[in-house]
Write a protein that binds this DNA or RNA. Structure first.
Lengths: 353, 353
DNA sequence: AAAGCAAATGTTAGCGCTAACATTTTGCCG
DNA sequence: CGGCAAAATGTTAGCGCTAACATTTGCTTT
């Protein structure tokens, strides 16, 4: 037989225009119908110049009549480009990675690229490497890695050597292009906001320190305290979940001189809020709390949470811009893009009692 | 010139084994290196039988030496299959759709399929149609549509006529394969739980009624009340957001005889919780609240939320199973798969005061 | 009106792979 | 140890498309 695909209807027609074989129409089918060469049809489909308007019209009619759709595999094979980008995403319901994923997809769509997603259910280096391998095997033009792990950098560099790649929320130094939010700046803003309200010092419920965001927020918080000459208590380690926030909050609730907490993300802040309430500490009268992310629910916590908003849509857009620059121009401009978060004041912060 | 791709290094080598041309190795390169035909190499790569162990070994060595990776575009062109599935997903941070997306991706990965995502930022029928069009143009073997809109059914049917398709959370009747959670059953369970605790009736903060889930939860709640002969107040309309929940909660907080609320999802329940507290109603002492979804944060609401857990991982797995059945076997078993949610008891419900 | 030229269109080859069929080995039997 | 089937391998063609080059057409110029 001649290749695959649905069986074509009985090839009985004598010679002329076949009556629609049982497979999707190809360029040649349109060409035959219109009476031009398949190349001319290709030119029309791809908007190439040098087709007479009259011809173009006839071809367009044929295209429409047959319901022609270009075969992406054939295109990719002929051009060496698939117009498909890969996104490496951390699975789960963390606000940041999810929002970034959709933002990237939207930006890609606008640039007429498809997006194939590989999600990461574990952050083991081996799992990251395997996921990147899948991407590499996928016939992709470039990769957006939403890989907030600090030590994923090596694996990413290896991929970046073979393929355009942008790391979102990766360490901005190194030899790969990155787009990230200025975590330290945000954390400093949060801490300074609390110090300015009169709190003697600020405690920190941290994210995992092997995440770029976690480390950056710790650093910013620490720097702000140092600058102000405030006491630096060791941060409480968390893992971004409300559960961890609750656990940390329970410990904090036992400390009598506690007046202000900077929590590394909003989901943990929810847990902290409940722990403080159950520990008999009112927010914000007794203790002030600041989160990070501005998830849509933060405004409806009890009390509404003061937090730092990150513009993930912008992160997505910038990532794509940077990636397509590499894909299309071949340039390798690895200027790190940094986006600043914005403090959103709500009711969870007040001067100390 | 002969096609595209990165420029091959200077073609100066006399005749023998070329010194790695500047493009990724293809089957023929391995074949030449090993001294067999490209077809034999293909057989080894695809684990076809009928290759002598000795030959297979030599080919495998060549494959490894050259770092061969199959070209998916060429494969797709030759076989008519891309081993890529499309997922239509509602963008945003709703727990259900996001969890389902990742679950589908994981299941697809296990079946050795790639997943390309098209996200929906608007639920206008036109937007849905356009998104499906993109999918159709993407050279995909099948579609998982996480499209909870009731009136998307027509657009889906149109696609299903050309391509294997599974609708997740779509109306289980109709001519397309669906996988869904038994929303009405869950809602009935929630309502009955409250009635059994002694509440005379239960109010409902609903999701959008043009969503399958929204409608199903309204129906189940309604049925339970009718069965029990309880008063049926009109449901309060919401849009799944905490903001809408808060608004509804504010109205409910003004009703003196309110003792129990069934909220159509956890995020809205968060808003209801805050509204009730601000309205001076204690939960669960004065008013009981039940949510739906069991998002990871629900356990850390104040108070921890009684809710219905949906097994999205199972939904993802079943969707993929059903889809691959269509893709691979060609069967079109459109038996709707229904998964039951499970009541998770926490501290937001109690007998009426 | 013939020549010349640019614009429009056609022809050919090849992207890397798989399927089908053709050919060569092998092992094994009488 | 020739011969023969089965196993192993090779050859050919074609998937649908684009790029490069070849040819034709339509138009201007003198």
């Amino acid at each position: 037989m001649d290749g695959p695909g649905p069986d074509r209807g009985g090839e009985s027609a004598p010679e002329g225009t076949q009556p629609a074989p049982g497979r999707p129409p190809a360029l040649t089918d349109v060409a035959r119908l219109v009476g031009v060469s398949h190349q001319t049809v290709s030119r029309v489909v791809n908007n190439h110049p040098g087709v007479r308007p009259r011809t173009r019209e006839r071809v367009l009619a044929g295209l429409r009549e047959l319901g022609y759709r270009p075969n992406p595999a054939a295109r990719a094979l002929a051009t060496g480009r698939s117009r498909t980008l890969g996104v490496l995403a951390v699975a789960g319901t963390l606000y940041g990675p999810t929002s970034t994923l959709y933002a990237v997809e939207q930006a890609a769509r606008e640039a007429d690229y498809q997006v194939t997603v590989v999600s990461l259910h574990s952050l083991e280096p081996a799992a990251v490497r395997q996921a990147l391998g899948r991407l590499l095997a996928g016939g992709i033009d470039g990769v957006v890695a939403i890989a907030p792990l600090l030590d994923a950098t090596d694996a990413l560099s290896a991929v970046a050597a073979r393929l355009p790649l942008v790391a979102v929320e990766g360490r901005p130094d190194g030899d790969i292009a990155t787009v990230s939010v200025d975590q330290a700046h945000g954390a400093r803003t949060a801490t300074e906001h609390l110090l300015a309200a009169g709190h003697p010092t600020v405690r920190h419920v941290a994210g995992p320190s092997d995440w770029y965001e976690g480390a950056g927020r710790i650093a910013g918080w620490h720097a702000a305290l140092e600058t102000a000459g405030a006491v630096v208590h060791p941060p409480l380690a968390g893992d971004w979940t409300a559960r961890a926030g609750f656990a940390a909050g329970c410990r904090l609730a036992r400390e009598p001189d506690l007046t202000a907490v900077f929590v590394a993300n909003d989901q943990m802040a929810l847990g902290v809020l409940r722990a403080l309430r159950e520990g008999g500490r009112r927010v914000p009268e007794d203790v002030s709390v600041v989160g990070f992310d501005d998830i849509p629910e933060a405004e409806y916590f009890s009390p509404p949470l003061t937090t730092l908003r990150q513009d993930f849509a912008e992160v997505g857009r910038q990532s794509l811009r940077s990636l397509l620059e590499q894909v299309e121009a071949g340039t390798t401009s690895r200027t790190p893009v940094v986006i600043s978060p914005e403090l959103v004041l709500r009711r969870s912060t007040a001067p100390p009692p």
